[in-house]
Design a protein around this nucleic acid. Sequence first.
DNA 1: AAATGAATTGACTGAGCGGTCAGAATTTTT
DNA 2: AAAAATTCTGACCGCTCAGTCAATTCATTT
Lengths: 209, 209
Amino acid sequence: MLEDEGLMKLKVREELKLKKQAYVQEEILTAAAALFAETGVRAVTIDDIASSLGYTKSVVYYYFKNKNQVLWEIFERIHEAWSQDMTSIMEKDLPPAELLGAMIRQHALNVMGRKAWTAIYFRDQAELTSDQQKIIVKRKREYDQLFKTVYTKGVEAGIFRDIPTPVIVSGIIGMANFTHAWFKDGRGLAPEEIANHYVEIILNGCRTA
Amino acid sequence: MLEDEGLMKLKVREELKLKKQAYVQEEILTAAAALFAETGVRAVTIDDIASSLGYTKSVVYYYFKNKNQVLWEIFERIHEAWSQDMTSIMEKDLPPAELLGAMIRQHALNVMGRKAWTAIYFRDQAELTSDQQKIIVKRKREYDQLFKTVYTKGVEAGIFRDIPTPVIVSGIIGMANFTHAWFKDGRGLAPEEIANHYVEIILNGCRTA
DNA sequence: AAATGAATTGACTGAGCGGTCAGAATTTTT
DNA sequence: AAAAATTCTGACCGCTCAGTCAATTCATTT
């Protein structure tokens, strides 16, 4: 029927439009993340973001409701990527030492692979609304919990020393996160080497004597 | 002579005035540091700082030239305190393992003892002028160098594994710094306990097998 | 070619904030 | 008590910037 054809066309058009918009949105988010990471969210104007792409401010406002939405979408991207990486490692069902090693490696690689993200995630949380902050706090707790659970299993299996989990887990994450402040792509060691060093340090540091 | 007496009086008066002013200045710096740490320098207005002490904006401008000076003085305080603590440990001339342990402990305690300072020092550097930033970068290098030198000595003495110094030193500092984000005074473990755990983790993690 | 709708522009508003300044209040000195 | 020095006040200026909006350009469909 003609009605159906019309509907189909509308759907296809709609999809194309959304795809195009999604592309520009990602473009803007990437540019924004780079700028945010450099000088902090508060110091970056919408104009800065737009003109770094050759756009005008109004273009950004055409694709995003406001500055907060730009920031929040970045936080969402970070969470999605990181939590997916981590859960896919957990699914492998490795023994505690190997598993913890793989998790540390993955986290460190994530940080070095996207330094901008880490800078924003751990520095500019205060720029979010309090509702958004609550969500982030919850997600961080869940993320930490993955590490804590694995570590506790290792302690129970007698292969890890009984260090309080907040201490060891925050230590691991702090160590890895800090790479965002000094690691330079292409200069010196490769991310994999650095990550492996941290795995070694932690595993040796926690192993029962 | 009368002239001398007059000069003396002027000097004493001058000193008193400076002492009084210094007191208010420190008061303002402390309040500012607390607010800066909470939400970031950019998000804090001079009005916020002033009214958190029951003053008006103009009072702050009476004691400080501008916002940048307030921030810079905080950076100066941090550097003074930290570098003094660290050099006084170096002077004890301990063997590498003990020395590195003491340094890690001191750094961790410094961070937990003044969480606000760490937050500002590592997050709000971009708010400084580029000249000031250069100074900070240099100081950080020097600070790192203290750790690197000790670690290298330990490697040469055969007691530490040969991990590239930027990796191990940044790892240590990152681990300790991150406490500022999760450590709560009075809740859970005491700073000394936490610091000792990190000392253990690192020393065990680096010791030659 | 006309019509429809998506994308873009640029001028504008209003609020917030850093910083100034003339003078008022307070304290100290003589 | 007067003079001098200090601390403090509050109104004000200029600028930046988030966000709006009517109008225009561009692309697509019929």
